[in-house]
Simulated assay, not measured.
Amino acid sequence: MDISDSTILHIRTARTDPAGQAQDAAMAAALEAICFPPEQAASPTTIAERMASYADHFWLIEDEGGTLLALVNGLCTNERDLSDEMYEDASMYDPDGAWQMIFGVATAPAAQGQGLATRLLHTVIETTRTHGRQGLVLTCLDDLVPFYARLGFVDEGLSASNHGSMPWHQMRLTLA
């Protein structure tokens, strides 16, 4: 899939009406399943629970036909560091939290390499700034450290996270 300049893309947050949210959760879970190994991908149940708790913290890019091409999701909290518990416990969400945690950044394989994740992350960063939060925190594998660094995230070294039994770098973008 080649995203040309004439391709109409829509950036939005997840829907809050039950039918729309169920559809968004199913699409998000399917995208997670193809973009991450099983031990790292959020389950359909986890995605649905997250979306029910904080739909406005699921940013989606879809084409004009409604196909989900990329997503970013995560909760807000006053905790400074991303912990493994946050991935599974949607109740840790604090709508007034100082930090926007990012759990997942995924782009459909056919749409990769065309700047969609970068475009979506710029939206997330600006939304986080608009809400007056201190910044964003994510964890990533070694090979993605340069990608996030180009967006202004600073590598804080290996995280305490053991999500999916992998070593993760914690990266932070401080806004305030």
Rank of each mutant, 00 (worst) to 15 (best):
D2P: 02
I3W: 08
I3H: 10
S4M: 07
D5C: 04
S6E: 12
S6D: 13
S6R: 13
R12L: 07
T13L: 04
R15H: 11
D17N: 15
P18D: 13
G20T: 11
Q21L: 12
A22F: 09
Q23D: 14
A25P: 03
A26Y: 00
M27Q: 13
A29K: 01
A29I: 01
E32L: 09
E32S: 01
A33N: 06
I34Y: 09
P37T: 13
P38G: 07
E39Q: 15
E39M: 15
A41L: 10
A41M: 03
A41N: 03
S43Q: 00
S43A: 00
S43M: 00
P44D: 06
T45Q: 06
A48K: 06
E49T: 09
R50C: 02
A52H: 04
S53M: 14
Y54H: 12
H57I: 00
H57T: 02
F58G: 00
F58P: 00
L60P: 04
L60Y: 01
I61F: 13
E62H: 14
D63S: 11
D63K: 03
G65T: 13
G66I: 09
T67C: 09
L68V: 02
L69Q: 04
A70E: 02
L71Y: 02
V72K: 02
V72Q: 01
V72C: 09
N73P: 04
G74P: 05
L75A: 05
L75D: 02
L75P: 05
C76S: 14
T77I: 11
T77F: 08
D81Y: 05
D81N: 13
M86N: 00
E88N: 04
A90G: 02
S91E: 07
S91N: 08
S91A: 14
M92P: 01
Y93F: 14
Y93W: 11
D94Q: 15
D96Y: 11
D96N: 15
G97D: 05
M101S: 12
M101W: 03
T107K: 03
A111C: 15
A111Y: 10
A111G: 06
Q112S: 12
Q112C: 13
Q112V: 07
G113C: 05
Q114R: 08
A117V: 04
R119P: 05
L121I: 15
T123A: 12
T123M: 07
T123K: 14
V124R: 07
E126I: 03
T127Y: 06
T128W: 06
R129F: 04
T130N: 08
H131W: 08
R133H: 04
Q134E: 15
Q134H: 13
L136N: 01
V137G: 02
L138W: 02
L138G: 00
L138M: 03
C140S: 07
D142T: 03
D143P: 05
D143G: 15
L144Q: 10
R150G: 12
R150P: 10
L151I: 07
G152S: 08
G152M: 09
V154C: 07
V154S: 14
V154Q: 11
G157V: 09
G157F: 12
L158S: 11
A160Y: 13
A160G: 12
A160N: 08
S161C: 15
S161M: 14
N162V: 14
W168Q: 01
W168E: 05
H169P: 04
H169Q: 06
R172P: 08
T174L: 14
L175D: 02
A176T: 09
A176P: 06
